Simulated assay, not measured.
Amino acid sequence: MKVLLYFEGEKILAKSGIGRALDHQKRALSEVGIEYTLDANCTDYDILHINTYGINSHSMVNKAKKMGKKVIYHAHSTEEDFRNSFIGSNQISPLVKKYLVSLYSKADYLITPTPYSKALLEGYGITVPISSISNGIDLNRFERSKEKEEKFKEYFKINENQKVIICVGLYFERKGITDFVELARKFPEYRFIWFGHTPMYSIPRAIRTIVKEDHPANVEFPGYIKGDIIEGAYSAADLFFFPSYEETEGIVILEALASKQQVLVRDIPVYKGWLENEVNCYMGKSNEDFTYLIDGLITDKIQNTCQAGFEVAKEKSIERIGYELKKVYEKVISNDPVKNKECIQHENQN
């Protein structure tokens, strides 16, 4: 079995959760011994596993179908998580939904990160079989490291007793960036650092203004930072606060959990079935909730859930995800009469 992993606009999307999902797929397939290629011109593959939905992605699906190849679409995107993102996203989101339905319906099988996103797609009327498989997490990469933590503290000149609250995400209203800043105003004694970057020309003026100037002195937007500094931040910070309103999963949450960091999120449907309030994380529904929880968690008035959160990350390790992907690939191949015939002939020869 050979899989073509296709990812349109890899350089542009490398800083997003979808970009990290591709890295995880490569690792996961290597872990379970599945051969893969990233060469879009390759023709000797069995399955096209496609991650993006641009014009070239559409062409790749059509090309694969003409060649008689099986197509698995990794449905990272929905209409819901497209809204409240880029300029004009709410106005064109119905068209995006229509396009996604058309594209996803051409696949032989769909993979989506959570039962929640699976339910959304089924609600669109899509009849293609769907499996929910987490994007996974590299536990080794986010294992606590004093060296990485020191690099983070040195980079941001963090004092010994200074409390730090972090978030990682694009500059989208959907991500809860306005709430992050509003909460920071209530805790001027703490440092709030939002990691991530989105081109300023692509986001609404109100969000641009927040990032560039309309935020208190204790809020920082250092942009996209990778490697030891961000990995050190995940474990060295005092809290990972992710107030997003809509996700298909949230890879950054898995990264925080894998770092044994305390996680605070908004109570939204996507977390049902894998995150549990007051068990492996804390959840709030309003800024009033978040104010209470931030205070309680930072001052240790509330018991932390770090170890239980780490257990969640272990359940979604890249190794486990690799086996789940393999099962889907085998299921798709088993429904291919041409491949089945080849397998029978190979067995008879042996």
Rank of each mutant, 00 (worst) to 15 (best):
G273C: 00
L257F: 07
L257D: 01
W274Y: 14
V270S: 07
I230V: 13
K272T: 13
Y245C: 12
E276I: 14
Q261K: 13
A233I: 09
P222W: 03
F221K: 01
V270I: 10
L239V: 08
Y245D: 12
G284C: 01
P222L: 06
V252E: 02
M283D: 07
P269Q: 02
E246K: 13
V252F: 09
Y271I: 04
G250S: 10
Q261A: 12
S286H: 09
S235H: 11
P269W: 05
W274D: 04
P269C: 07
P269E: 01
I229G: 07
Y271A: 03
E231N: 12
M283L: 11
A236S: 11
E278G: 12
K226N: 13
G223F: 02
E255C: 08
G273Y: 03
S259N: 01
L264V: 03
F242W: 12
V265L: 09
Y234E: 00
L275R: 03
Q261M: 13
V270A: 09
E247F: 07
D238V: 08
F240R: 01
E246D: 14
Y245W: 15
N280M: 05
F240A: 05
K226P: 12
E220W: 12
K272P: 11
L257C: 07
S286E: 08
A256T: 08
D267T: 07
K226R: 15
V252A: 13
L264M: 03
Q261E: 14
F242R: 06
E231R: 14
V265T: 09
K260V: 13
N277D: 14
P243E: 06
L275K: 01
G223Q: 05
P269L: 07
G227A: 10
S259P: 01
Y234V: 11
L257W: 02
V270K: 03
F240Q: 02
S235M: 11
E247K: 01
L254Y: 04
Y234A: 03
D267R: 12
I268C: 08
